[in-house]
Simulated assay, not measured.
Amino acid sequence: MNDVMGLENKDGVQTADVISVLLGHVKEGYKFNPDTPLTEGDRNYVSNPSPDDKVHCLVTIVSANSLSLMDQSIINKMKTVKEQANDIDIPQFILLTKIDEVCPLVKKDLKKTYTSKKIHEKINQCSNLIGTPVKFIFPVKIYCYESDTNDPTDILIMLALRHIVSAANDYVASL
């Protein structure tokens, strides 16, 4: 599992570095430089990555309540990474978080997530902005203030996770 800092600010990871991660060219533990992407010849650059070094599934986290506020430059970076992942057939998903903050109905009852018009609108908006098909966008509520887990939140997360793991397994099997 690779977790990289977001693309949204000047201190975030470079788009080229995210692509290098996808391709397996980044050594584990490398600290990304927000000013300069990793290049071939750097001591942290893996020239001949093994299948284990490569990413098997790309998961992007997007906040439902900030979709309309996303800067075009961030959207363009996301599309660039998405296109590279498409070129090498890496499965891709988006976790659309904070759905409880954009829909009062869902805030009251998470079981209404897939019947909420507001959530459908947000999923479609996300799909249109980034270009990811709707069926690969999973609305989830993140644990923020809760001290205990609850079934509706867990079910949404587990549904997304099941699809992500299945796609990653299929990808690895195809290598």
Rank of each mutant, 00 (worst) to 15 (best):
F138S: 12
Q84L: 00
L110E: 11
K112R: 12
Q72D: 14
I119E: 04
K79I: 08
K82E: 07
V55K: 05
G29H: 10
T149K: 12
L110A: 05
K112M: 13
Q125T: 03
G29I: 03
A85D: 07
E83Q: 11
S20V: 01
G24C: 08
A16L: 09
G12W: 12
N33Y: 05
H56V: 08
D148M: 11
C144L: 12
M78H: 01
T39K: 15
V13P: 01
I90D: 00
M78S: 05
E83M: 08
K117Y: 02
L23Y: 06
D17N: 12
I75A: 03
V18N: 05
I137N: 09
P104F: 06
N86G: 04
Q14Y: 00
P139K: 08
F138D: 09
E28R: 09
K54F: 07
K141T: 10
F136N: 15
L110F: 03
D42A: 12
G131H: 06
P49S: 12
C57F: 08
K79C: 04
E121Q: 10
A85W: 04
L69F: 08
V102I: 15
D42Q: 02
I123L: 00
Q14S: 04
S20K: 13
L110G: 02
A85E: 02
T39L: 11
L38Q: 07
K54G: 05
N86M: 07
K31D: 13
P49N: 12
L58M: 13
I99R: 03
K122Y: 01
D17T: 10
D148R: 15
E40T: 10
L95F: 13
I142W: 00
